[in-house]
Computed example of a mutant assay.
Amino acid sequence: MDASKIVRRFLVPSPAITLYYLAKSGAQISPKAEVELSPHFAIGRQSVVSSFTKIKSSDGPLKIGSNVSISTGCFISSQYGGLEIGDHCLIGPNVSIIGNNYKYTELDTPLENQGITSKGIAIGRNVWIGAGCVILDGATIGNNVIITPNSVVSSKLPDNTIASGTPAKVIFKRR
């Protein structure tokens, strides 16, 4: 880990990060949230990040749109594949959005020594992600989608749908 990443991650106090993003983009980030100060991170106007949420973007681009509400206890991490969350999204409590995966092709090599992959994640506009959901690397969520609580999304969900389950499947088309 390079020195600038260490300074940004560990030595910049949370209230300073809260004030920085408030001044830069009008976003409200709780001082009790853990948000990295990173050149890869952008957050839109009027977005809110609640307490005990962790957002990591030092290893890849992470763009959060305007009027996005991220509830308490979430974990959001991007890698080199990137992560984009559209405008007007609601992210419920304890949601995990994980932008990487371990390689696992070599049986004789420990998983942590095989490296990672990162396809990226795209979340459309006006999406509601229920409490406890997990969004995995490679997922694409269309516009106007609702994902029921405790679902796991690992593939593509089309626009205007409601999805549920592990893995999440479309259960209803919104009209």
Rank of each mutant, 00 (worst) to 15 (best):
D2P: 08
D2T: 14
D2S: 15
K5H: 12
K5G: 13
I6V: 11
I6S: 02
R8V: 07
L11W: 01
L11T: 03
P13Y: 13
I17Y: 09
L19A: 14
L19Y: 13
L19W: 13
Y20K: 04
Y21D: 05
L22H: 09
A27P: 05
A27I: 07
Q28Y: 11
Q28G: 09
Q28W: 12
Q28D: 10
K32Y: 09
K32A: 13
A33Y: 03
E34C: 10
E34N: 14
V35S: 00
V35R: 04
E36G: 12
P39C: 07
H40N: 15
H40S: 12
F41L: 08
A42F: 14
Q46P: 01
S47I: 09
V49D: 02
S51N: 14
K54F: 09
S58C: 10
D59Y: 01
P61A: 13
L62R: 04
K63V: 12
I64Q: 00
I64K: 05
I64N: 04
G65I: 03
G65Q: 00
N67C: 05
V68F: 05
S69P: 02
S69C: 07
I70R: 02
I70Y: 02
G73S: 06
G73E: 02
C74S: 03
C74F: 10
F75I: 10
I76E: 05
S78H: 06
Q79C: 15
Q79M: 15
Q79R: 14
Q79K: 15
Y80L: 08
Y80R: 15
G82C: 01
E84Q: 05
I85S: 04
C89A: 04
G92F: 00
N94G: 05
V95R: 03
S96H: 13
I97C: 03
I97R: 01
I98N: 07
I98Q: 13
I98V: 15
G99Y: 09
Y102K: 00
K103N: 15
L107M: 13
D108L: 11
T109F: 06
T109Q: 14
I116P: 07
T117K: 10
I121F: 08
A122S: 15
G124T: 08
R125C: 12
R125W: 11
N126A: 11
W128D: 06
I129K: 08
G132P: 01
G132L: 04
C133F: 04
V134Q: 07
G138M: 00
G138V: 07
I141R: 03
I141K: 03
I141Y: 02
I141D: 04
N144L: 05
I146T: 14
I147A: 00
N150M: 15
V152C: 06
V153S: 03
V153P: 08
S154Y: 10
S154G: 12
S154H: 08
L157H: 05
L157S: 03
P158D: 01
I162M: 05
A163V: 05
G165F: 02
A168M: 01
A168T: 01
K169Y: 06
F172Q: 14
